[in-house]
Amino acid sequence: MRAPRTTQTQVWMLRMVTHPDGVEAGFAAARDEGLLPPGVDDPEDLVVPGDRMTAFERLHVYGYAYFARLLDILEDEYPVACALIGDGARDLLKRFLVEHPSRTYTLGRLSVGFPDWVEEHAGACVSDVARIERALEEVIDAVTEDPLAHEALTAIPMEDWAALHLRPSASMVLFPLRHRVNAVMNAHKRGEELVLPSPSPEPLFGCVHRQGFTPWRREVNAVQHALLATLRAGGTLGDALEAALDVEGADPQALLGSLGDWFADWMGDGLFAAID
């Protein structure tokens, strides 16, 4: 079954109400693109005006709602990135929305591409912040798990640890960063002035997870990242240690000296869910 006239109506209406320059520009665009029925040269040929509203004003109700609603959502998802961008933030979000209109049923995926996109338009530091903010959105939706108790690990004889599959929380997200932007996130939370950090001289990664219903974010170095990424990929603790030692510049003595503290911190923060 087909519904050609219904399709045509829906196509021109969506074109008009999502046009960034307003429904009048949307009408012109729809006409130029051949989306209107033959003979239509006035919006009142498409939409019935009323005593108090023209056809364009009626369309504008939907056009206004489209940008207001979706831009509000993007601002809520990226408060720190928007604060760094400053006065032009909403205009930039609008450009993103125009270039990346939603193609799924869920608004949860509306801004998946924003961290990459914003790098070209506002720089790598804003992109790093956006990457953290996107990760915070994603971990909120992840499966809820009880964290692994530290005792569950210490109850196992140390000589067996290398073969253990220590499973990170399903909510854990790891991603590369170029700047130490966690400090920017903290400053924003405290209402302090935001200062853009210099690029990190060392490889740097973001790690975001959820303990209970509270999301946590931290920065990890390349060695820590190798450990966590290997465990998340299903490797054993022994595999993770090997991967960490393979990191360029990794110091075996320093690594062995830090491992206990790192894992104690991570377990205390609920970064692991189970021993498989």
């Binding site: 079954m1 519904a3 050609p4 006239r5 219904t6 399709t7 109506t9 829906q10 196509v11 209406m13 969506l14 109400v17 999502t18 939907y62 709602a65 489209y66 609603r69 979706l70 209109p101 939603s102 193609r103 799924t104 049923y105 608004l107």
Partner: peptide
């Protein structure tokens, strides 16, 4: 429509064709 979502409750054209659809 055509793969794009406006995330709003847009009115149907009220016609015999859209009713059947």
């Amino acid at each position: 429509v055509q793969g794009r979502n406006g995330h709003d409750l847009y009115p149907m054209p009220y016609t015999d064709e859209s009713l059947r659809w």
